[in-house]
Design a protein around this nucleic acid. Sequence first.
DNA 1: ATGAATATACCTAGTAATGGGTATTTTTTT
DNA 2: AAAAAAATACCCATTACTAGGTATATTCAT
Lengths: 207, 207
Amino acid sequence: MIRLAIAEDHQSLIDGIKLLLEYEDNISIIGTANDGKELLEIVDKKQPNVVLTDIRMPKMDGIQATKQIKKKYPKINILAFTMFEQVEAIEQMIDAGASGYILKNSSLKEVHKAILTVAKGETYFDANINTNVLNSKSKNKTKGILTKRQIEILELIGQGKTSREIADLLFIGIHTVDTHRKNMVRILGLKGKGELMRYALEKKYKF
Amino acid sequence: MIRLAIAEDHQSLIDGIKLLLEYEDNISIIGTANDGKELLEIVDKKQPNVVLTDIRMPKMDGIQATKQIKKKYPKINILAFTMFEQVEAIEQMIDAGASGYILKNSSLKEVHKAILTVAKGETYFDANINTNVLNSKSKNKTKGILTKRQIEILELIGQGKTSREIADLLFIGIHTVDTHRKNMVRILGLKGKGELMRYALEKKYKF
DNA sequence: ATGAATATACCTAGTAATGGGTATTTTTTT
DNA sequence: AAAAAAATACCCATTACTAGGTATATTCAT
């Protein structure tokens, strides 16, 4: 299930997209915004997993918003929504961490397909625009997300240790352990210690 | 580390065993009792993983005590400690769930070895007594411990679900889920939801 | 059909975890 | 040297879990 947030300064366009997408049963539009700041609020509150955002917007543009979102929630996939062939802005979006871009005058089918593609963690580059984005630093690939310390704590969580025990083992405060745990839950897009532990144990079997 | 509880009606014998075993650094004597009822209390309170018990004792004999302990804590391994060649009583002990037996007049080395053996989950039958225990129903092998419902709940715990979520999924009360969880933690000899979850996930990878 | 085992449900008090923050120090990168 | 990232620590209110119980229906085997 895709939880989609949309940011676009022309409300009429948002209404149009909502109309077009609300009959797709695998996409749920969980919030819309008319500028970048609003988008950040929605992301914090509604926890989307995909964001479709305009680049040029009031208060905060899509590039800044993308940077902020990817910094705090690296797992959220962002699709740039652009009216004109603003090659430079598009490249900045990709550098900021967007997973792709699509023209506003694309068909519903194409928009839908683009959303599905980035939702899977893949990239989607609209074929009607010529950019050298493919040669760009495609670094934001959501890998090696966790820090050494976080991995260390994750492993102990995977051993069934409580926060208190981990704190004692690593000679740090329990608050610190809690903070790391919280950060990991957020970064990995999970729902609490239960899933975090599951994640920890699954990783072990994969490496 | 072996947490040993001893039950024996002759206090002088208990003192002797304590003297003999207290210098073994892998065995910790966590409690002693002079009859079967006392033994049950100690097991509840101190959570031993190995019990060395006389067969003939006041108030409750070793056979009854063994049955009760194995019913509540199947993971605890019980070693019968017998003075004479009471073949029939020994066979009853084995049927009750004991992992083996040893004569009281054995050397420290032998007693120590017997304790280490049953602690590993193996059986130990004193070679100086002739019984046909080996042909007896050696059923109490601590396998298939959990009931269907418990396994069902364990799997959901392994998926990172909370008790509340499990209760809703199975259309039962949260109290019931808690009770099942408690029972599993006790039966499997674990230390809480963390280890229970670990257990659940490890089982999955084994079958 | 009677008894044992299982599954169900509730109680209480205490501890742990969660999900919002904020803030400081240390380390790393630019 | 300044900026960014990582690690550290704390607060608060709410929810979840723990560890003791008890108790009552089912279900299953003898």
